[in-house]
Design a protein around this nucleic acid. Structure first.
Lengths: 128, 128
DNA sequence: CAAAATAGTAACCAATGTGGTTACATTAAT
DNA sequence: ATTAATGTAACCACATTGGTTACTATTTTG
């Protein structure tokens, strides 16, 4: 939904309300504003309050990547997580698996993020 | 948890019960058996019933990758999903974003899976 | 053949996360 | 002062997940 919203902002190049954005996503304005809140905190959009308020991109769509949007929304979530059951101190596997697996998952996560970084919002906008 | 279990199976090279596996993961045997069920259906482990039953790897740990385990457990889930709200036919963005974004997400997903494929269970086992 | 120990699975619960909704406070233009 | 917008809290419905209990099916062993 965040990418959908950002694409809409890039596509219509003017200020637009959460009401109108909700219309393209087919959901509730509050849901849209929640997402826009995260995008705003990440510095990707500008929000203006009051009558004739609305949202717009904070910078050119060629300078915004899918990774920027991904991070704004899923800031501290990982794609795949380790289980968090307590260790069994008597078991070498139990004590060490998490650490080892963690490094491999980070590798994969980085590869995923590198791909997202390659795609600019402008690329998506062009396909509309 | 699945990787933890598979590592344990690789580490002790003999048949082992869900009770013992639950002990290293620090959870319930039923939870372990649920995961082992998926791993079994994916052909990664062998299960034996009855007294002296238990589980063992179906093939050498060097021939099992993290991707195999990932697919066994998260078979049809994607790392990141498209929203599934209905389209707004009157809006070009609403109609086209999903398709465009989908191809980029598949690229990233593939990159993630390529990294998982590089890691063999044997690599993890060696670090124990 | 009976007992014991194991896998397989259904059913339920608690906790969590997500999206939708209502309601209201805050802000700014008119 | 009115109007129209953002910002957010509160609540609900729903799905997912891991844990738990309880049971059946299977296999070995005394």
């Amino acid at each position: 939904m965040a990418v959908h919203i950002m694409t809409a902002l890039a596509y219509v190049k003017e200020k637009i309300s959460s009401e109108q954005l909700a219309n393209t996503v087919n959901t509730n304005p509050v849901v849209v504003r929640r997402i826009l809140g995260a995008l705003n905190r990440a510095g990707l959009v500008c929000a203006e309050r009051g009558k004739v308020g609305g949202f717009s991109l904070a910078r050119a769509s060629k300078d915004i990547s899918l990774l920027d949007i991904y991070r704004a929304i899923l800031a501290k979530q990982k794609l795949v997580n380790l289980h968090d059951n307590p260790q069994n101190r008597a078991c070498a596997v139990s004590c060490k698996v998490r650490g080892v697996l963690s490094t491999h998952l980070k590798q994969a996560q980085s590869a995923y993020e590198r791909e997202l970084k390659k795609v600019a919002l402008a690329d998506i906008e062009k396909s509309m």
